[in-house]
Amino acid sequence: MQTKVENNKAWFLVLPVFIIVAFSAIIPLMTVVNYSVQDIFDQNTSYFVGAEWFKQVMLDSRLHDALIRQFLFSFTILLIEIPLGIGVALMMPTKGKSASLCLILVAIPLLIPWNVVGTIWQIFGREDIGLFGAFMGAIGVDYNYASDPVDAWSTVVLMDVWHWTPLVALLCYSGLRAIPEVYYQAARIDQASRWAVFRYIQLPKLTNVLIIGVLLRFMDSFMIYTEPFVLTGGGPGSSTTFLSQALVQQAIGQFDLGPAAAFSLVYFLIILLVCWVFYTTIMNMQKDK
C-alpha cells in the first residue's frame, strides 16, 4: 500500500457523493425513525407511542420466523454457491476465444432483471409448461413449488444458485488470473498434486475475492425480494417469506407505517452490524499484508 497524503481539502471531492447519497439515504432514514415512534392514521393525525412498536416487532413471532428463515436461506445459498463458484472458476478456460465466450455466457444470468429471473423459474418449474417441472414429474418426484413448502424452498434456493453462482465464479476467475505462471511452474517441478496446487497456491490468492464474494452474496441474499415474490409470492403459507417480503407486506399491504418503520430499523441495524464485521475483517486483512 502506498502512503497517502494528509489533506482535508479532499472532502470537496467527496462532497457530491455525500450529498447525492445522503439525499436518498439520510432523509428517508430520519423519516423511518420518525414513523417508528408514532401511530400514524393520516398526514395530520398521529400519536407519539414511544417504543411500543419496537416491543411489538421484537416479540412478533412471524418476524422471528422470517428472520430465522432468512439466515437459513443465506447460509444455505452461501454453502452451495461459494464451492460451486470456485469449481466453475477452476474449470473455465484461460486463453483464447473460448475464454471470452465462457465469460459472456456465464455472466448472462446476472444481467437479467430480477423479476424476469422469477418469471423464468416460474415457467421452468411448472409441471404443465416447464421443462424442470416436467422432468421432475417424469422421474417420479411429486413436485409442485406452488403447494409444497419443501419444493418451494428448494426451487427458491435453486433459482438463487442459478442466478448468483456466476458472480462468485467470475470473482474467483479474476482472482485466479492474477496468479503468476511462475507459481504453477514451480509446482510442476515439485510434482505437486492438483489438490496441493489448489490448497497452497490458488486458495490463498482467492481469499481476498472470496471475502468480497461472501460479503456481496450474504448481503444481497439478505435483502432478496423480487425473485421469490414473483416465483412463490412468499408462499405456500409463509414458507418462503423472507425479511424484505415480510416488511413490504406490512408497509404496503397493511399500511402499518409505525410497526413497519420499527421493523425497518431493526432490519437495518442487523445489516449494519453484519456489514461492519465484514468491513473490519477486510480492512484488518489488508493491513496485515
Binding site: S24, A25, T31, M223, Y225, V248, A260, S264, I271
Partner: peptide, 24 residues
C-alpha cells in the same frame, strides 16, 4: 467512516427505505 457509511448504503435493503421514498 465515510467509506464505511457509503458501503453500508450499498448493503442496505431497498425495502427499508421504501416507505418514505414515495413521499420524499
Amino acid at each position: 467512516h465515510m467509506f464505511f457509511w457509503l458501503l453500508s448504503n450499498r448493503m442496505a435493503p431497498p425495502a427499508v427505505f421504501l416507505l418514505p421514498f414515495f413521499q420524499l
